[in-house]
Amino acid sequence: MRGLPADLAASATVAGHRLGWAAVRRLPERAAYRLFDAVADVTVARGGAARMRANYARVRPELDDAALDALVREGMRSYLRYYCEAFRLPVLDRDAILARVRVEGDDAVREVLDAGGSAVCFLGHLGNWDLAGAWGTQFLGPVTTVAERLEPEEVFREFLEFREGLGMTILPLTGGPEVFPALREAARTPQVIPLLADRDLTRQGVTVDFCGLPARMAPGPAALALAERRPLFPVSIRHERRGRGWGIVIVFHPPVEVPATGATREKVVAMTQACADVLGDAVRRYTSDWHMLQRVFVDDLDPARAPAAAP
């Protein structure tokens, strides 16, 4: 928080999250959504959605300023809706979760699990992936995923406990055991491994064509699928109206093909590109559900952020 010493700002952030966990659960659902819509509108009005607007402008270049402004407003509302739903998730029972989720294309994933295998999923920051994870643990199979370590540490712990409370196994991206070996171990048992990959959090990312522009994405899902010979499913998530409230649609797209020839790195890049193609189509169609407030396109990145050498 601007103007506060670091330790006080961290304490205020933790207190704010804990207040959110407690207070939003007690509000009627419609009132909670209206409150978060209002916060989203204020955020946009105060210029807090500049990066979202820049990203939307790149994937939807046909929009004029007025249409882009309207889309950003809806995007920020969708982004805050994610938090509203996250704060309320711990009080939802199985029936309530099921009522909020519609699924398409999950038959192929269920076949993999029923055969004793695991399914690796390539996700973007679309819709509500925590609600999707909660649905998965209840109605699909065990879920193991990776979480970016947030600052301050107390906030990361809050979200870690929240997601584990939903039934998911969470591996911290940094500050814990090596992630890739742990994921390989997980992939050897029947479970779903969804990984957010539309943003490069390390220097190991690969450059792909995303909505017609070069962007950096994480190679982890493709590398894991190749290493353990598991299918790689692109997955898109979007919000949809449910009566007076909201729900989500989880779409399991067909698994991407594994190139017959080429070095491992080349196969990883090709499979990541195939996932980026699917994700790009979803982002163009449901742009307001893409909650990307960071830089992903190469032209927006620091020039010093060069690709790492191939492992």
Results as ranks from 00 to 15, higher is better:
residue 27 L to Q: 03
residue 30 R to Y: 09
residue 31 A to H: 07
residue 32 A to S: 13
residue 33 Y to N: 03
residue 33 Y to P: 02
residue 34 R to G: 06
residue 35 L to R: 05
residue 36 F to E: 00
residue 37 D to W: 11
residue 38 A to H: 04
residue 38 A to G: 10
residue 40 A to S: 11
residue 40 A to G: 09
residue 40 A to L: 11
residue 41 D to K: 10
residue 42 V to R: 13
residue 42 V to A: 11
residue 44 V to H: 06
residue 46 R to M: 10
residue 47 G to Q: 07
residue 49 A to Y: 01
residue 49 A to T: 08
residue 51 R to Y: 08
residue 51 R to L: 13
residue 52 M to A: 08
residue 52 M to G: 05
residue 53 R to W: 09
residue 55 N to S: 03
residue 55 N to L: 04
residue 56 Y to F: 15
residue 57 A to D: 05
residue 58 R to D: 01
residue 60 R to I: 04
residue 60 R to C: 13
residue 60 R to F: 05
residue 61 P to C: 09
residue 64 D to F: 09
residue 66 A to L: 13
residue 66 A to R: 15
residue 66 A to V: 14
residue 67 A to L: 11
residue 67 A to T: 07
residue 68 L to S: 03
residue 68 L to G: 01
residue 68 L to Q: 05
residue 72 V to N: 01
residue 74 E to G: 12
residue 74 E to W: 02
residue 74 E to A: 15
residue 76 M to R: 05
residue 76 M to S: 05
residue 76 M to H: 04
residue 79 Y to E: 05
residue 80 L to D: 01
residue 82 Y to E: 03
residue 83 Y to L: 09
residue 83 Y to W: 15
residue 89 L to N: 02
residue 91 V to M: 14
residue 92 L to R: 14
residue 93 D to R: 10
residue 93 D to M: 12
residue 96 A to I: 10
residue 97 I to K: 02
residue 98 L to V: 11
residue 98 L to E: 14
residue 99 A to Q: 13
residue 101 V to N: 01
residue 102 R to S: 14
residue 103 V to P: 04
residue 104 E to D: 14
residue 106 D to I: 08
residue 107 D to E: 15
residue 108 A to Y: 08
residue 111 E to T: 13
residue 111 E to R: 15
residue 112 V to W: 01
residue 112 V to I: 14
residue 113 L to Y: 00
residue 115 A to Y: 00
residue 117 G to K: 00
residue 120 V to C: 00
residue 120 V to Q: 00
residue 121 C to I: 08
residue 121 C to S: 10
residue 123 L to C: 08
residue 124 G to L: 07
residue 124 G to V: 04
residue 124 G to Q: 02
residue 126 L to Q: 13
residue 128 N to R: 04
residue 129 W to P: 00
residue 129 W to M: 07
residue 135 W to C: 05
